[in-house]
């Protein structure tokens, strides 16, 4: 369904120098599967998502979706072809209401549908359907509304960027159930979940481990998860503050 071929990405750092963010990324996402992308902070997970969505333009390589080269398509064109991205830190909007943005995500949705998606992410429709997406919402509420929008959009490929971040423990399980329930075995849909969460990772069909802008490991969850589990929980890298440099505290394997 979606293939990344030799994708590289350079971005300018704070000092203006180009920094290599992604190196020769080759990935294929198939229909009906759940994928997890995991790895240390700053390793390139979100950059892969943004390259897929067109937010970052790759420096090299190709992105093929349903047989079409979409490398040079805009964000809007990709969204209209069936790609969707739930932001790690969703922006806030003054004066834009929950039901309004849900209808932007899915113009065919009715109020019953909106209420259903809000319940799916553990939000009481009565309390949220007319709420402003501005500053009155907590980070966790904003995050759950972001997931609700993407569920409503019902795209062919949906990338959830750390859906658990800022969300309470009780809701994480609900999010896992609803994302898995909507995507697993559905041959029209694919979910890609960027996560560090030990509940999300094992329930995915495949895990892709990304660090230093490269794919370190990729394979069935049953094979990859046990290999990386301890490192995920402990965090793979530790900054050596005294030495001023970065050391590899543990290898992935």
């Amino acid at each position: 369904m979606l293939t990344l071929r030799g994708v590289g990405l350079n971005l300018n750092g704070d000092n203006g120098d180009a920094k290599e963010i992604l190196k020769n990324i080759n990935l294929t996402f198939e229909s009906g599967k759940l994928y997890a992308i995991t790895g240390p902070n700053g390793g390139g997970k979100t950059s892969i998502a943004k390259v897929i969505m067109g937010i970052y333009q790759p420096t090299e390589g190709q992105i093929i979706f349903e047989g079409e080269d979409i490398t040079n398509l805009s964000i809007t064109e990709r969204a209209r072809r069936g790609l969707a991205y739930a932001f790690q830190q969703p922006p806030r909007f003054k004066g834009v209401y929950v039901d309004e943005v849900m209808r932007i995500a899915n113009p065919d949705i009715d109020e019953m549908g909106i209420r259903s998606y809000l319940r799916d992410v553990g939000l009481c429709p009565e309390d949220y359907i007319g709420r402003d997406l501005g500053s009155s919402l907590s980070g966790g509420e904003t995050k759950r509304l972001e997931v609700a929008q993407l569920l409503a959009k019902d795209a062919k490929i949906t990338i959830f960027d750390e859906p658990e971040a800022g969300v309470d423990l009780w809701t994480i399980q609900k999010l896992i159930s609803v994302i898995a329930g909507r995507h697993r075995g559905n041959d029209q849909k694919t979910a890609v979940i960027i996560s560090h969460n030990e509940q999300f990772l094992p329930m995915c069909d495949e895990i892709i481990l990304v660090a230093d802008g490269e794919i370190q490991e990729q394979g069935p969850s049953a094979a990859i998860w046990p290999l990386i589990r301890d490192d995920i929980i402990c965090d793979c890298r530790i900054r050596n503050q005294c030495g001023g440099g970065m050391i590899e505290a543990q290898q992935y394997r």
């Binding site: 969505m53 809007t76 209209r80 969707a84």
Partner: peptide, 15 residues
């Protein structure tokens, strides 16, 4: 804010 524009474009709106 650029992220507001991008967010709405990822939902299918043009700029």
């Amino acid at each position: 804010a650029g992220d507001q524009l991008i967010k709405l474009m990822t939902l299918g709106l043009d700029e």
